[in-house]
């Protein structure tokens, strides 16, 4: 239990650290690491963190064995894994396209949607400042 929780903490720490990086690629990878951490946490929530029998009903039996893992979080995590994968793919392509089209890989320098204000402090007029 403690081990899994620590794994959650470590991957989360690394993920947040990377996400707060100015490098686009690191930022995106960081998010996927946080995703791994969240999946692990969800999995741990099933409280079957030591039971090692997979939740499969054996031939002939009508019910799961007593030492089987809790199947519900597994199903949930399975869904979550697929979803985070989809998100990661999207974000990677997005980051690469951005990098390619702007030549900038610094997230803070990439101020296309929110250009900096004019020297007089007023918000920029489209195409000026």
């Amino acid at each position: 239990m403690l081990v899994v929780a620590c794994a959650v903490g470590v991957s989360l720490t690394a993920g947040v650290y990377l996400t707060s990086s100015r490098d686009l690629l690191r930022c995106v990878i960081g998010i996927s690491l946080i995703g791994v951490s969240a999946n692990l946490a969800m999995f741990a929530a099933g409280r079957s963190t030591t039971a090692s029998a997979p939740p499969v009903v054996l031939e002939g039996a009508r019910q799961l064995p007593v030492d089987a893992a809790n199947p519900l979080p597994q199903a949930l995590v399975l869904t979550a894994i697929v979803i985070s994968f989809a998100l990661t793919c999207f974000s990677l392509v997005l980051a690469l396209v951005l990098q390619q089209r702007t030549g900038i890989s610094d997230a803070d320098a990439l101020r296309r949607s929110e250009p900096p204000p004019c020297p007089d402090g007023k918000p920029p007029l489209e195409g000026e400042c």
Partner: peptide
């Protein structure tokens, strides 16, 4: 795309 990135993260 820049907006999408911020929205995404």
């Amino acid at each position: 795309l820049d907006a999408t990135l911020k929205y995404f993260v």
